[in-house]
Design a binder for these strands. Structure first.
Lengths: 126, 126
DNA sequence: CCATTAAGTCTCTAATTGAGACCTATAAAC
DNA sequence: GTTTATAGGTCTCAATTAGAGACTTAATGG
């Protein structure tokens, strides 16, 4: 009755290490997608604006992360017929719904940072 | 006043793509750590029990993920002097506090799975 | 004695990431 | 009128990371 989620999944014939939930979390909780979604949480951004906001990302990874998020319907890609053409990325409703959960995770990490840094120091000194 | 978190971090001289929060999330939201933490959410487990619960993980990655989580004080590693010695892993208080946030993320992914699968289908057919 | 179990380590290969050159078209700068 | 910049990418190659699986040590079961 209070089986772990992992056990429930297995009972349903799911491979927990390669299930739909995992695929979604992979696209949404990885390094660059997290930063992209946080930036888009503040409003639509164009490709090069994202590049400038995330100074360490390569164009390659930015393109790939945006494609994944777009395919999952988490962000929207719009091309405007300016010269040269510009492309705008924004959160969809699905993406908007994800942000609060992400913020909760970040707040947990911020709140526990002192404890974690202490844990690391104790661990490393031995 | 309602600057994005990214902008706040930058204003404080933080590199958002390599900050303490990111390091913590990396250890906690990656593929194997997520599955390990879910399994430990159900109670302490020994090394080989985790291996069996996560059939696709290699010993190498299990060891590495456990070491990272232990160093951050998210799980506890205890060695018992049996023959052969056995090692038990369990959640610390920090780890316990993380689980509800992780569950919220998983519930979001489960709840939005139909919409995401639809989005993918629409996207791919074009 | 041969096999198995525990909790790993080690090596080698495969997959993923990152750095950065290159592309196309237009328009402003010199 | 020729170089220079901008937009939004793609492409290639090198470096990093992950995965598969053989090997270890000591003890116990058959």
């Amino acid at each position: 009755m209070s089986d772990s989620r992992l056990e429930q999944w297995r009972a349903q014939g799911f491979d927990p290490s390669n299930c739909p939930v995992r695929q979604i979390l992979d696209h949404v909780s990885a390094k660059w997608p997290v930063l992209i979604l946080l930036e888009l949480g503040d409003g639509p951004r164009r490709f090069n604006a994202l590049l400038r906001a995330l100074p360490d990302i390569s164009k390659r990874m930015l393109t790939q992360s945006l494609r994944d998020l777009e395919r999952d319907g988490i962000i929207l890609r719009e091309v405007f017929d300016t010269k040269p053409p510009s492309v705008s990325y924004s959160l969809t409703d699905i993406g908007q719904g994800f942000l609060p959960r992400l913020q909760a995770l970040i707040e947990w990490a911020e709140g526990n940072m002192p404890a974690i840094i202490t844990a690391r120091a104790l661990h490393d000194q031995e």
